[in-house]
Each structure stands twice: as structure tokens, then as C-alpha cells.
Design a protein around this nucleic acid. Structure first.
Lengths: 209, 209
DNA sequence: GCAGGAATGGATTTGACAATCCATTCCTGC
DNA sequence: GCAGGAATGGATTGTCAAATCCATTCCTGC
């Protein structure tokens, strides 16, 4: 549960410093979502954030460290949006509402960038072990959030007792990720919609009574 | 249906030349599967394929052209494996057999590299429009193969008449891609298994009678 | 108000890597 | 067997981006 905010390893940050650091992270996250990690240069980040080399390297050991901060940042952003929706699951309507939010959000970008977490994971998995572990942890949190929502549905009698929230959550996350990837490639939300609808239909299989 | 073999744009290739070109493509495909596109250098490819600069640039305009050839190569490889299995779909046993092959194959790599097509798509989507289109085309072919298999199952009375092979195929491909990504990140096949099992269960919803 | 660390400026170095170039050798068709 | 394109050798160039360095300025706590 270690947040991304305080990496108080060596230097203590002043308020101003923290702001600069956050700005760099945010800008980098945006650039890397729009264009991938490898093709966003440190110079790009410097320019977009309006900072100098000294500043950037004052807050981040190297590009990898920046990337790690970006992963943490995107994890916060995604889960910050997802958790409220998922913890409110008490009906299939709520589940569909969750689906709609995601589809709408992705549609507004025409799928560009794909999943902020998944795309980082895909690009970094074979290149940066540490990054892979961080992404794995992000996915684990996401999966947990889904599972808790489904558990709630079960406990409220919306889902049958024999429904397995763990498996359903993992399958749902997979469907979501696959849908996001295909939507990113096709620049069109149909795959995401169909994938999520199928996942929800599968969950519907475990409707109570 | 244009194959990857003959890019007879300008130079006509001799048998030997074709062999060299293929070797470069194969080696590049392997390296890029193992380490991603951005982090495999032309030098890496040269070394591994045992060719010189002149050779590589004799057959490929630049790195992008090589990447395009790799996409085509991986598409052939994947569909070459998938199509026979999918066109033989005539029962849920066959569907499960298809699932098992994929799980086994990916398990033998511990998920490393993820999907040969999907990982390329994810890394290149926002960087190389042409590559994105090529990957989209590959996915379309894959989706078609799945759809045809499901259609066959329906026509043979295994699936009900109201089953929608188009939607089911898209949902299945999404589940597969998501499962592959999560499995790549976690280095463990559970996500892939659960995702495919859910997809198959969903298809099972449309079992005849 | 001053000491010391934090924050910033900005030029510079270093290295990697894609791509080019000029030869030379090898084949293949005629 | 020879002409001409294909294939290869291998050094070299040029670019770009990551990272370093030495200052200088700014704050904050005491």
C-alpha cells in the first residue's frame, strides 16, 4: 500500500520540490500514455514539464526511476476511478454502469493509449523486471477491487452462493484488458463492449435463484 | 491474403537472398518477442543472424520495414498454428483442446513474450500507424478463424441457432489477449486458463437444446 | 540573519545505435 | 565465359538521447 507520493529515500522534499516532482511525473505519465515509454525522451518530458536536466535528475535517479513513478501514478489514477464504482456493486445495473463508464472513457480517446496500466506492462514486461512486478501488483489491486465488488453482490444475494468471485474477477479483468487492447488497435470501442458484455453475461450465469 | 514472403518491390531475390532475408526476419522476430521491439537493436539482429550492415539494409529499408516483416512473420506463425485447430471445431471437446494447446504453449515459456502479435501491437500502436494497421489485420484474420470454427459448431448443431459466432469470436479473442497479457505479467498461466475457461463457459451458454 | 541543504540553470560529455558508403565477391541468365 | 545485377564486407558517419557536472539561487530551520 506504499503510495507513489513519498519516495523519501535520500532527499527530503519541500512543498515546492514535491510539486515539481509531481508535475514531472504527471507530464511523463501523459506523454507515455500517448506515445509509449521508449519513444518519449527525457527531453520531451523536460520540455513539456518546463524543467531542466538538473531538476529532473534531482528527483529521479534515471529514466527507469521515472517510469516506475509513472506506473505508480497511473495505478493511483485508475484505481481511484475504479474502486468507487466497484465497491458500489449491488446489482447488475451497477455492473453495467461500471462497464459503461469504461467504454465511454475509452471511446472519448478512440482507444488511444489503451489501458494506462496494461500498456505499460506490455511494453516493459520483458525489459524491466521491477516494472513488471509493479504492474503485477497494480493488476492484483484491481483484481481485488473487482472481486470485492462481486463478493458484495453475492453477499447481498444478487449472485448465487456458488459463484466464485475470485475466478470471476480474474476473468473479468482479462476480458477488460483484452478488450482494451483490441480497441486500442482498432480505434473503435466495439471489442471492449463485446468483451465486457460477455464477461457480464458470464457473471449473470451465477445470478441467484 | 498477401503473404509475408515476397516483398518483391524493387530487388528480385535469389534463393540465397531469400534465405538470408528469412533468417534475418526469423531472428528479429525471436529477439523482439523475447525483449520487445525498442530494445532490440539492429546490431543485436545482425549479430544473432550473422549478417553485416550491408546485408540487413539490402533487404530492409530501415528498422521499421524489418518490424513490419516481423509482424507478418508472427502472423503466419500464429495463424499457422491456430487455423488448423479452429477449423476442426466440432465439439466442446475440440474447443477445450484448443484452449489446452494455447495454455501449454504459453506455459512452456512461463508467459514470456506474451502474444507474439498482441505484444507487438501494444508496443507499436501509438508509434507506428502502419504497424497498428497490420496488427489490426492480423487480429481480424484470427477473429475470422475463430468465428468460422464457431459457425461450424453451430451448423453442426453443437451450438444453438441463436448463437452469434461474430460476437462470440470477438469476445473470445479479447479474453485470450487479456489472459495472455496477465499471464505474461505474472509469469504464470492461471489468468490465461481462467480467461479462456470463462470464454468457453460463455459459449457453452449457447449449447444446442 | 545565517548556515546548509534543497532547488534550479544550463552547458557538456558519453555512448549507443540507426543508417550510409564504397568496395568486392558471388551468381545467374544468356 | 561474360555481363550485370545480387549479395556481401566492413569501416564510417551522423544523430539523438541519457546522464553528468559545476555553478548559482532559493528556502527553511534555528
Amino acid at each position: 500500500m506504499a503510495a507513489a507520493q513519498d519516495t523519501q529515500d535520500e532527499p527530503r522534499l519541500t512543498r515546492k520540490g514535491q510539486a515539481t516532482r509531481d508535475r514531472i511525473t504527471d507530464v511523463a505519465a501523459q506523454l507515455m500514455l500517448d506515445g509509449g515509454v521508449a519513444s518519449t525522451s527525457i527531453d520531451d518530458v523536460k520540455r513539456a514539464a518546463g524543467v531542466s536536466s538538473s531538476q529532473l535528475y534531482h528527483y529521479f535517479e534515471d529514466k527507469r526511476a521515472l517510469v516506475h513513478a509513472v506506473i505508480a501514478r497511473q495505478t493511483e489514477a485508475v484505481l481511484g476511478l475504479q474502486r468507487p464504482l466497484l465497491s458500489a456493486l449491488d446489482s447488475f445495473e451497477a455492473l453495467r454502469a461500471w462497464r459503461d463508464v469504461i467504454v465511454e472513457l475509452q471511446g472519448s480517446r478512440d482507444g488511444r493509449g489503451g489501458c494506462p496500466i496494461g500498456s505499460l506492462g506490455a511494453e516493459l514486461a520483458e525489459v524491466d523486471v521491477e516494472a513488471r512486478h509493479e504492474v503485477a501488483e497494480s493488476f492484483a489491486q484491481w483484481e481485488t477491487a473487482i472481486r470485492d465488488g462481486l463478493r458484495a453482490m453475492r453477499d447481498q444475494g444478487v449472485l448465487a452462493a456458488d459463484a466464485d468471485p475470485d475466478r470471476l474477477a480474474l476473468a473479468t479483468l482479462a476480458a477488460l484488458q483484452g478488450g482494451l487492447l483490441l480497441t486500442q488497435i482498432r480505434r473503435e470501442t466495439t471489442p471492449l463492449e463485446v468483451a465486457l458484455d460477455a464477461a457480464i453475461a458470464h457473471i449473470g450465469t451465477f445470478r441467484a435463484e
